[in-house]
Structures are given as C-alpha cells and as structure tokens.
Amino acid sequence: MNKKKIVLAEDNSTLSLLLKFRLEKEGYELLMAVDGKQAIELIEEHNPDLILTDIMMPYISGLEVISHVRNKLDLKVPIIVFSAAGQEEMVLKAFNLGANDFMGKPFSPNELVIRVKRLLN
C-alpha cells in the first residue's frame, strides 16, 4: 500500500522535526516546509493527502496557503492549522477559507496524531 503523504509547514524547526518523527512512526510520508512558499510548492508537486500548517509564517502565511489550495488549486484535501494564543481571529479566517481543524499552541503531539488519523481514515 502506498504511504499517505502529509505536507507540514511550520517554522519552528524543533517542533516540525518532532512531528515528522512522530507521524513517520505512524506510517505516513512527511514533506517538510519552513514557510508558506515552500509549502505551496510541495503541495503542487506532490498532491498530498493532508496539510498541516502554522498560521504565522514568514513570506506566505498559513492563511494564504489555505486560500491557494482551496481557490487556486481547487483541492479538497483536509487542512489542519496551528495557531498561537491571541490569534482567535486568524483561526476564524482560516475556517472561513476552508480549514478543517485547528490546534492551539501549545498542543499535545499525541492529540495531533489522533486528529490526523481521524481525517485520513
């Protein structure tokens, strides 16, 4: 069976490394981006099964990634956004743009895995 692909866009390198290891252990293939621009390139190239993206990122924000995926590429792929405290408005915007779920930072990696599995099964 082919591994399911996940694009992870997160500028905190330690966190993204942690999540990469965790999700790879669960049997997914991880494609890593450090900003929105890379994320969009990866999404266009690999057509992933799930997108995980931080809202606040340099160059292209998570919101723009969502908008690009939903409006330009017209993909239905599930998207989970990460947000820090005080970004409630951003989260609302993310949902309006078509995000499927969100995790407020700090979050538990185990909980993230559960949500990822739920969206991918």
Partner: peptide, 15 residues
C-alpha cells in the same frame, strides 16, 4: 534555547 523552543509549543507527556 532548543529545549524551550519545543517545550513552549507542546503539552502533555512530551513536555
């Protein structure tokens, strides 16, 4: 700094 960079973003067992 590395410990904190991760510690600030996660909760639960790992933290």
């Amino acid at each position: 700094a590395t410990f904190l960079k991760l510690g600030n973003e996660i909760t639960g067992e790992m933290a």
